[in-house]
Computed example of a mutant assay.
Amino acid sequence: MFVRAYLRASTSDQDATRAHAQLDTFAADHGLTIAARYIENESGAKLHRPELFRLLADCRPGDVLLVEQVDRLSRLTEADWRKLRAEIDTKQVRIVALDLPTSWGLATHPDEFTGRMFAAVNTMMLDVLAAVARKDYEDRRRRQAQGTAKAKAAGLYKGRPENAARNAGIATMLRAGASWQAIMDATGCSRSTIAKVRQRMEASA
């Protein structure tokens, strides 16, 4: 059994490794060793997350996917959550989340009956917490949209401030001939950000 830790933050401005120490402490307290860590800056509302699927590709039956909270794994719609769960179930991966005590027993080697009981309870609780995480995501998006609309009506909305240092780095890498994938890997930005920087460069050329 290998324990594989998954650490995620939504944007490149956030620290995806923030929960590193908490996961290490949990593993030590339960006599586990984290074999690999997979870190990415992607929204939990997106199914396409390269590092998460690289983790699943590396897994063998019985491996543990360790996360700080269920919402680090999913803020997905129900349909996308079902797709992710199907992939996890196919790989026979056990999900252990620090905010889900019913999952902690899966980090050990219980007998068959106990293991099946843990798995059944955990499946139900994961579905519940995944639904809660999605609702929280949608509620926050709605509040943000309402706040933006109010600010625009008052003439106060200025939009998200530009990450000038990062964009300057993207421009430098583009001039050096770096591929878009290499730039995304190095900066954590999206393809749309690279496209905007490139358009700006072409306009000023």
Rank of each mutant, 00 (worst) to 15 (best):
M1H: 12
V3G: 05
Y6P: 00
Y6C: 09
R8H: 14
S10F: 04
T11Q: 15
T17W: 02
R18Y: 05
H20E: 14
A21C: 00
Q22P: 00
T25L: 04
F26H: 05
A27I: 05
T33N: 05
A35Y: 10
A36T: 08
A36F: 09
I39F: 11
E40M: 11
A45Q: 08
A45N: 06
A45M: 03
K46M: 11
L47Y: 15
R49D: 07
P50M: 06
E51M: 14
F53L: 13
L55S: 10
A57G: 14
C59I: 06
C59V: 10
P61V: 09
P61H: 09
P61C: 09
V64C: 12
L65G: 06
L66M: 10
V67W: 01
E68I: 01
R72P: 08
R72K: 02
R72Q: 10
L73S: 05
T77S: 14
E78S: 10
D80F: 14
D80T: 07
R82E: 04
R82F: 00
R82P: 07
K83E: 08
R85G: 01
E87W: 11
I88M: 10
T90K: 12
K91N: 12
Q92M: 12
Q92G: 03
R94G: 03
V96S: 05
L98I: 09
L98Y: 02
D99H: 01
L100M: 15
L100W: 03
P101W: 07
P101Q: 08
T102K: 09
S103V: 01
G105L: 06
A107N: 03
H109Q: 15
P110E: 03
P110C: 06
D111E: 15
G115H: 09
G115S: 08
G115Y: 02
R116G: 00
T123S: 06
T123N: 05
D127Q: 03
A131T: 15
R134K: 14
R134C: 01
K135Q: 15
Y137E: 05
R141P: 11
R141N: 10
R143C: 05
R143A: 13
Q144N: 15
G147P: 06
A151F: 09
A153N: 06
A154G: 00
A154W: 00
L156C: 00
K158V: 06
P161R: 00
P161T: 00
E162R: 15
E162C: 08
N163R: 08
A164D: 02
R166G: 01
N167H: 10
N167I: 00
A168R: 04
G169N: 02
G169R: 01
M173Q: 11
R175E: 00
A176D: 15
G177M: 00
A178K: 15
W180M: 09
Q181M: 13
A186H: 07
T187M: 07
T187I: 03
G188F: 04
C189E: 04
C189S: 11
R191K: 12
I194Q: 05
A195V: 06
K196I: 13
K196H: 15
V197T: 12
Q199V: 11
Q199R: 13
R200H: 12
M201L: 15
M201R: 05
A203K: 15
A205W: 09
